[in-house]
Nucleic acid binder design. Sequence first.
DNA 1: AACTGACTTTTTTTGTTGAATAGTCAGTTA
DNA 2: TAACTGACTATTCAACAAAAAAAGTCAGTT
Lengths: 207, 207
Amino acid sequence: MSPKNTDQEEENSKIDDIMKAAQQRFGQYGLCKTTMMEIATDIGLSKAALYYYYPDKESLFEAVVLKEQKQFLEELTSAIKPGTKASTLLLTYVKKRQDYFDRFMNLGKLRYESMSTSKPLLCRLSENLLLKEQQLVRTILEIGVANKEFKKMNTQDQAVFLITMLQGFRLYAVKMQNDLVMSEEEHAALDENLKKAIQLFIRDISL
Amino acid sequence: MSPKNTDQEEENSKIDDIMKAAQQRFGQYGLCKTTMMEIATDIGLSKAALYYYYPDKESLFEAVVLKEQKQFLEELTSAIKPGTKASTLLLTYVKKRQDYFDRFMNLGKLRYESMSTSKPLLCRLSENLLLKEQQLVRTILEIGVANKEFKKMNTQDQAVFLITMLQGFRLYAVKMQNDLVMSEEEHAALDENLKKAIQLFIRDISL
DNA sequence: AACTGACTTTTTTTGTTGAATAGTCAGTTA
DNA sequence: TAACTGACTATTCAACAAAAAAAGTCAGTT
């Protein structure tokens, strides 16, 4: 039985401690290269204690990722104010999404071989976000259409296309990176491309 | 010493035979899963004879890839006729490039582990193509600008951006494929995205 | 309820060995 | 002498086994 594992903030500081340590470890060394032992000792607990709070490593990892996703989605949701121009919202979306990408990159960092092992988990987590992301982008597009800022369109298809395009640039950037970590210039180039792409897209759907 | 290994067509049919067999084998089984022995016996030669014509496996593979690249580039170059609309040329480019992608996908097919081993070779070959591809796309864009079909622009930057964007969609498609080989639907989705993307791009640069 | 230490199970790493393949070369052939 | 071959060596790979490390469990303590 696990204790109250709810999302109530500020409640049980122990879970908070665990999350912090896990976030730090996963963020620095990635999923594979972080052990439960390390996380436990980081906060002065025994490994077994971790298993009292989380049934397994995947669950802990998932909790960390979900937290990051939640933050991204909340930031974005709160940015969607009635008065804002839809094109501005799209720009905000790209920016926030990129922040999330940067964080997730590290979290999921894994060796080539074990890629297949942890793929299902990573996929599940990505898909989870994707659906909500689609919904949010769709909402933005619908605001634009309602505003007469954008043409009438199939907002579902357009949202999927946009997300795919931006993800394509990210994959390209990851593929092109020499080191295991993205350099400053490589990152700047990615940002440049994303900016260009979203402008292209906005131009296409604008009235 | 290797014999005349020039590009003169129809000359030495032996090299042609080797290339055909290699193309067939590499195309079906990929780089790793093809042995020099197989290629040799396919055309009734001893393995050692292959090494008379090509110093090593990589050279042979490279020759095959270069041949495919040459074909792609020539087809594209010959499509660039003075009278043609630049936007039509861009559409042709996307199509031909996709044909090349399909062929190359098989050629380079390799197991996950050995990816790191043969990466340098694959990278070198891709970069080789990239430069020529950039030049060709640039030429098309310049035709469009000269035609007053496209706006004035930095054709170099735009060519690089376009190529990156299209490659991004391809990477996305590869990433999303479940099997080691792309399914019919996955392929269709990729084509759809590329089509959409190039239209977006054309729309952006059109006057 | 919140933990621990000692335990078992699973996964990863390392090392070894035989087989498969890459690559070499002295010598043959036409 | 260009075009090859057979027999060789050198690498690389696959398949196991043992050792080490990490995941995950649990009876018992505070």
